[in-house]
Design a protein around this nucleic acid. Structure first.
Lengths: 182, 182
DNA sequence: CGCAACATGTAAGCGGTTACATGATTAC
DNA sequence: GTAATCATGTAACCGCTTACATGTTGCG
């Protein structure tokens, strides 16, 4: 599932500009699918060229013209077709865990700094979902609710794990380093 | 944290060949950091050129020579330095969740197929960790145990969420589609 | 006065994936 | 016989990130 396909899917829910889609990537999609302008704008251009979306330019005073994209019948059909061969991948790339593997080479202070940073990031993502649920939950799809719920569950599970296992990491590390005379 | 840095870190735990490191990426690291030969071999070459690792060629009969890499003092110092500016990122790229967002465009059968596929993948990763814990747990580092524990926690949390929320997704989807006369 | 939000785009570059290339041995 | 394991590497490609480019409005 690439950025282009996700953009097409987002547009199946209603028309939007690239700027609007970016906001969606940064709120509801943030915890499982990132995308920047450098991916979104070219994706929309390609989609338009293929006739999967139609573009309407809306003039604005002071601001640049808004390019509002709407999915076409062909686009919706194409998206449904894509879903028949669904992407079930779920890839995690964690610098946090890759760092923690080598906790025995770090001081307890360094370890705690990493943990705090991770915890702050989780809280940021959690807050994003909370905000969405407080404003758009009523008119959101069951899928969107499911995905947000999954994100919340995973993030709470990670927070809990981090809180409960700091000791085993920092103290064990300390003991081992003391034992080896470092 | 790129593949090169992780390889250097892995070598801080003992010497290994590129082939050995690949096996580690496919077992313990599989749930949070993927890497293929196409990244590993060039990474080791670069590391050797920079003097951070030393290479020893071991002749074998029938098989190609093994290139066994060992971290140098400069390499260990460099790795410790890297850890002083730690990577705390944790990125998820989920085709599974991106697909689920659009569950209302899929049939219950399609949704179930996606769920089953995801569940099977989780079980595969869980089995990998279980295997590791049954064989190497004794001589593993606290960091490695922490990371495996985190993986297990997250994967169990996801399995539980998927099991408990299938209804809200499939049935709601069904109701909505029925309501709209599809 | 400066920063955030609004709004769109391009282009270079980077890091990683995939496919290709080679070849013996062992187990089913 | 055929698949898996052992073992190394290259090269093309692809998708995404980052930086650059431009300009107004409104808020604190």
């Amino acid at each position: 599932m690439d950025v282009k396909t996700v953009c097409l899917g987002m547009l199946s829910d209603g028309e939007a500009s690239g700027y609007d889609l970016k906001k969606q990537f940064q709120s509801t999609f943030a915890h499982f699918f990132a995308a920047g302008y450098g991916s979104i704008y070219p994706a929309l251009s390609a989609l338009a060229k293929e006739g999967l979306v139609a573009c309407r330019e809306v003039a604005q005073d002071g601001k640049p013209d808004r390019k509002v994209y709407r999915i076409t019948d062909a686009g919706l059909a194409h998206f449904r077709e894509t879903l028949k061969n669904p992407d079930t991948s779920h890839k995690v790339r964690s610098g946090f865990l890759a760092t923690m593997v080598f906790a025995h080479l770090m001081s307890p202070e360094q370890i705690d700094a990493v943990i705090q940073s991770r915890l702050a990031d989780i809280d940021r993502d959690l807050e994003l979902i909370r905000q969405f649920e407080n404003t758009c939950s009523a008119n959101s799809t069951p899928g969107m609710r499911y995905v947000c719920g999954c994100g919340k569950t995973m993030m709470h599970a990670m927070k809990k794990y981090i809180a409960e296992n700091r000791g085993g990491l920092v103290e064990c590390d300390h003991r081992e380093r003391t034992a080896s005379g470092i």
